[in-house]
Design a protein around this nucleic acid. Structure first.
Lengths: 328, 328
DNA sequence: TTGTAGGCGTTATCAC
DNA sequence: GTGATAACGCCTACAA
């Protein structure tokens, strides 16, 4: 059904209905109610295409992340996606997931183009800076979630990576581990760099020497691999501050297979508190990151940016929470 | 840039460019190439809204599932979503996730309406039949993934739930467990019913008595709870055929805490082979379900249905693969 | 407070 | 083979 058809039924003009449906002023409450009632009865809804053609106001929110095919990302993906969708549900915006396996966001051959987007949420680390900068040049508001760019001023929502890493490291020190190693992923990722800084802060404060092992990725498998590369011996009484839970769980698994006792021979901390962390054996000491809250904050801030395109970029930082279990 | 603007640059009419871009016949290869070249140069792309308004051809694929807030769903969600998106990437269609917490799909207040959708993929179990039937009445092609409706003939992609459940149960019998219990979720879910059938098939064949415990949900927590409800004793030499991995992992965790040895006191099998199954302690015997492949099949079949709306509904069934680890 | 008319960018139909 | 023209359904001046 079209506006015109409905208007004929109601003996009003299409514009009147349009005004009611767009909450425009200057309509008598009597007609307004009559229209609203009829809309409800008939289940009428405005045609997106026609509407967008007339106003050229974009109605989509693009959620962008890089798919890495790994399992460790799926929980974060799911939880933050759910927050975005919930936030924009029944708003005038529709979320669309634009995550790609490649390094570029590419609309060719796609029904949508950049001009259909009111804003973008860019999730996570594994995106080249160049790609984000290209996106920025479109002029569409962008907010980064779990990332931050030093190259340019972009709104972003991150957790207090550095502080949390500091706290975790300090916890290992307090537990009395002799040598404390940090195992991390690519240093091109913002949060890895921050966590390294927090680790070093804590060691420096305690007068200990730092040792960092960087892996190519941050999966369960690279966690296992890290154990093999490290070749720990029990006398070292090692404390491991892992950059995330998935790696920590892989590390724990291999340590157990090699006959190491956790936490007595080696202590391990994770980062994120994914649902499986408490089910690891032994249950993983880690830091809870409030990803749902962060997702909601990102969506809310993006909405502000859309409504007020001139607002200056801000940083939103969400604290974490250390959760001590039996792996330390 | 608009078609008209581009046409002025090129000294051809808008219709000509439109024809080229839509692969219509009746264009000299010279003009065709000239246009294609200019489009590439300028990065021009057709306006979705205008295009849709003119053709009224829907360009969206709706992915529908019910969000349950649990973690156990996220891996399946992520993996199948990734397959849909990959399949429709650079097609004329755009995937949109319409998953909801409620029981209805509701477009009110949303920029999109039913008429924007070329097809729907309905994922998983936790949707009332009524909702799916309502959706069906729109006339838009629908395919069910990991579900099947006896109420009506709908295309669907499922795994061989019954056969796999049979194989898992048989494995427990072969391992010599005395009493074999099946722990499942709501019987309103298609795959739970199928798995129960497979379990009973195997027990009947072996001349054993069945015992089924149904829980409200199929999460890690309900897995733990199932252990408490069952109150096993070691003399029973129990084999547990769990309806999924998450529950099995919860069960294992609690069993260990209560001092039970797996697999000697109790044997446990999962279902799905989620990435965490091999990391459970002990590593979980389970059945691998090829969710990526199933997602791709669903997308492909939906595409066929869109192209040929009269094709008769079919069932696609994908076998699983038993993976024996140390929990049995 | 309400109605009328023109235009948004594309496609389809018809004419050349 | 190509160009003109009329829709598609909605919004927004402007008119009443």
């Amino acid at each position: 059904m079209t506006l015109k058809e409905l208007s004929e039924q109601l003996n009003v003009s299409p514009s009147t209905i349009s005004r009611v449906l767009n909450d425009k002023p200057g309509i008598s409450s009597k007609t307004r109610e009559k229209v609203l009632e009829a809309v409800k009865q008939t289940g009428f809804s405005l045609n997106y295409a026609a509407r967008n053609l007339a106003t050229s106001e974009p109605r989509f929110i693009g959620i962008i992340g890089r798919k890495r095919g790994g399992q460790q990302d799926s929980i974060f993906f799911h939880h933050s996606m759910a927050q975005f969708e919930e936030y924009f549900e029944h708003s005038e915006y529709q979320c669309v997931n634009l995550s790609v396996y490649k390094e570029e966001v590419d609309f060719t051959g796609t029904p949508l183009s950049v001009s259909d987007f009111a804003g973008f949420i860019v999730r996570g680390q594994s995106f080249p800076v160049r790609t984000i900068l290209t996106l920025k040049q479109t002029g569409v508001p962008i907010i980064l979630l779990e990332n931050k760019l030093s190259e340019t001023n972009l709104d972003h929502v991150v957790c207090e990576d550095r502080q949390i890493a500091f706290d975790l490291t300090k916890h290992l020190i307090d537990r009395g581990y002799k040598k404390i190693v940090h195992i991390t992923g690519p240093e091109s990722w913002y949060n890895n760099r921050e966590r390294i800084a927090g680790y070093i802060d804590a060691l420096t404060q305690a007068g200990l020497k730092s040792e960092i092992l960087s892996m190519e990725d941050t999966t369960v498998d690279t966690g296992s691999e890290a154990f093999e590369r490290l070749q720990p011996n029990k006398l070292e009484h090692l404390g491991i501050m892992m950059v995330n839970d998935a790696m920590a769980i892989g590390f724990l698994d291999t340590a157990r297979k090699r006959g190491f006792l956790v936490p007595s021979d080696i202590g391990v901390t994770g980062f994120d508190d994914i649902p499986w962390a408490r089910l690891a054996y032994p249950p993983l000491t880690t830091a809870r990151v409030f990803i749902e809250q962060m997702g909601k904050l990102a969506a809310g801030r993006l909405m502000q940016m859309i409504e007020d395109p001139d607002s200056r970029p801000i940083a939103i930082r969400v604290p974490g929470e250390i959760i001590i279990r039996e792996s330390t």
